[in-house]
Nucleic acid binder design. Sequence first.
DNA 1: TTCCTTGATCGATGAACGTCGATGCAACGG
DNA 2: CCGTTGCATCGACGTTCATCGATCAAGGAA
Lengths: 119, 119
Amino acid sequence: MSMKELPLVSAPCCAPGAPPLPEEERVVLAARFKALADPTRVAIVNRLAGADEVCVCVFVGELGLAQPTVSHHLRVLREAGLVEARRRGTWAFYRLVPEAIAELGFALTGTRASSRRAA
Amino acid sequence: MSMKELPLVSAPCCAPGAPPLPEEERVVLAARFKALADPTRVAIVNRLAGADEVCVCVFVGELGLAQPTVSHHLRVLREAGLVEARRRGTWAFYRLVPEAIAELGFALTGTRASSRRAA
DNA sequence: TTCCTTGATCGATGAACGTCGATGCAACGG
DNA sequence: CCGTTGCATCGACGTTCATCGATCAAGGAA
């Protein structure tokens, strides 16, 4: 693997009155935002937000993209820590990591969202 | 100006249980996240979050980048609707658009942050 | 074992991005 | 008027990214 998992960033960056951010945290935050800086990946995350687990084959069918392309986007999201994969036989199911999403939201607004897991 | 301002997106995209997002909204959201997908621009937004208005010359001095590069990043943030400029004589002062930041946070968490302006 | 299926990786290609020097343009001071 | 200052735009260069076809690895069924 070429990239390690991204460390946590627990300070707001963009909310009015936020304290200065050290260099490394800016890099980490930018990397996470970059993972969402593509319509396809926004669609994937949004799709996962509506269903607990989604098979890769479903994404290939719904997104209208080639399978390697879908796999590439899933990898980007995985390395950003926004999604995680669960292997079940031949299939791979992806699901959101709500804490990572909430952390990004906190970095933006400086306000903790009430963490609520989908039942 | 070559580009129009981005329209508003008022629905969450990434919070657990979020409804499906139409194509156009995914593109708009991805474009906004892309504006934050760079360490320099995160630094600019973070700097603006700590002070109401900042002169362009200050950014040039603090970021250690050439003036055209800073102007480029400010343009990206401006076209994303995250910052706005105020001309005062020869100088240009930039400031945050807190509503745009908060809107991005809402898209992520599905929770409205208590809008609070820096005094 | 031998197929078929699912998903990840590799390699290549075209587009987009970050960076900077040079230039343009408006506002001020002489 | 002319020269300077502050910022935006332009052009170019090197890097990164999105996309796809081909290939590979792992599992299930015969």
